[in-house]
Computed example of a mutant assay.
Amino acid sequence: MSGALIQSFRRVEPAWKALFTVLALVPLISHLFEFLLQLGFGYLTSTLARTDEAILRSISVSIISALFTLFAMRRGVMIVGESESKSLISDISRLPVVIFHFIAFIPNEISAMFRRGAHLGALIAIFGFGIFAQIIVWALTNKPSWTYNNGQEIPLIKFWGVDGMILLVILIVVSSIVYESQHSRSR
């Protein structure tokens, strides 16, 4: 059901409107129903105290899933019942490339922002990614930070969001190097 909803928004322009709608509607609709089921299950099994954790984890996974599904569908993969639909085998064979482009999308876009001179926007995007990473991983792990060796921690680096920003900056540098090498060969 969520796939059909996402597919109906795949051609909406500008893309941010589709993204916002999908990220608001899909979790709201699916998790409202799931919350009621979890609540009933928690009541029957005396596990109500864990219901909020289960819902948070489920919402986190749904956000990433909805983002990827919209990304893939905007590229003509996983489309059902339309003239440009491909076979399941064709879609599956295209998934590795789509997954790579999905992972590379944010670093490539921020790298392009730096090349255009939109430094403030790029820095805001990096910071926003850090906040997003912190919230998602915190929801998945139920821990605001990580430790090693029985509770030791590295100040500041212990937070998921900081780690996400560091990883993102590394990927932006790689994206910039790849862009420069591709464009220096074409000149």
Score class of each variant (00 low, 15 high):
residue 99 I to W: 10
residue 126 I to N: 03
residue 74 R to S: 02
residue 79 I to G: 02
residue 139 A to R: 08
residue 116 R to Q: 04
residue 95 L to T: 15
residue 112 A to H: 01
residue 151 G to C: 10
residue 92 I to G: 09
residue 72 A to G: 14
residue 105 F to D: 12
residue 86 K to V: 04
residue 140 L to N: 09
residue 122 A to M: 03
residue 55 I to V: 14
residue 64 I to A: 14
residue 68 F to T: 04
residue 115 R to A: 01
residue 48 L to N: 08
residue 48 L to Y: 10
residue 41 F to S: 13
residue 124 I to G: 05
residue 135 I to W: 09
residue 86 K to Q: 08
residue 125 A to L: 08
residue 74 R to C: 02
residue 145 S to N: 06
residue 70 L to G: 01
residue 123 L to F: 08
residue 148 Y to T: 08
residue 44 L to G: 10
residue 105 F to W: 12
residue 57 R to P: 09
residue 83 S to E: 07
residue 114 F to Q: 00
residue 65 S to Q: 05
residue 68 F to G: 07
residue 143 K to H: 13
residue 143 K to W: 05
residue 75 R to Q: 11
residue 72 A to Y: 13
residue 122 A to K: 02
residue 99 I to M: 13
residue 90 S to E: 15
residue 46 S to M: 03
residue 127 F to R: 01
residue 145 S to C: 02
residue 124 I to N: 03
residue 88 L to W: 13
residue 80 V to A: 00
residue 149 N to M: 07
residue 93 S to V: 08
residue 155 P to D: 03
residue 137 V to I: 14
residue 156 L to P: 02
residue 134 Q to P: 12
residue 143 K to S: 11
residue 134 Q to S: 11
residue 154 I to C: 05
residue 113 M to I: 00
residue 155 P to G: 03
residue 50 R to Y: 13
residue 61 V to L: 12
residue 64 I to Q: 10
residue 132 F to T: 11
residue 124 I to H: 05
residue 117 G to W: 00
residue 53 E to N: 10
residue 48 L to D: 07
residue 106 I to A: 08
residue 150 N to H: 02
residue 73 M to I: 01
residue 54 A to T: 15
residue 57 R to Q: 15
residue 80 V to M: 00
residue 74 R to N: 01
residue 76 G to W: 03
residue 153 E to K: 04
residue 47 T to L: 14
residue 89 I to L: 15
residue 146 W to D: 07
residue 124 I to M: 11
residue 76 G to C: 04
residue 75 R to S: 09
residue 53 E to F: 12
residue 81 G to T: 10
residue 111 S to Q: 11
residue 76 G to Q: 03
residue 94 R to H: 12
residue 107 P to N: 10
residue 95 L to N: 12
residue 109 E to P: 01
residue 64 I to G: 10
residue 93 S to R: 12
residue 107 P to K: 04
residue 114 F to R: 00
residue 89 I to H: 14
residue 68 F to M: 07
residue 68 F to I: 07
residue 124 I to V: 14
residue 148 Y to W: 11
residue 50 R to T: 14
residue 75 R to A: 08
residue 94 R to D: 15
residue 81 G to K: 09
residue 113 M to F: 01
residue 65 S to R: 05
residue 147 T to N: 15
residue 98 V to Y: 10
residue 89 I to P: 07
residue 80 V to E: 02
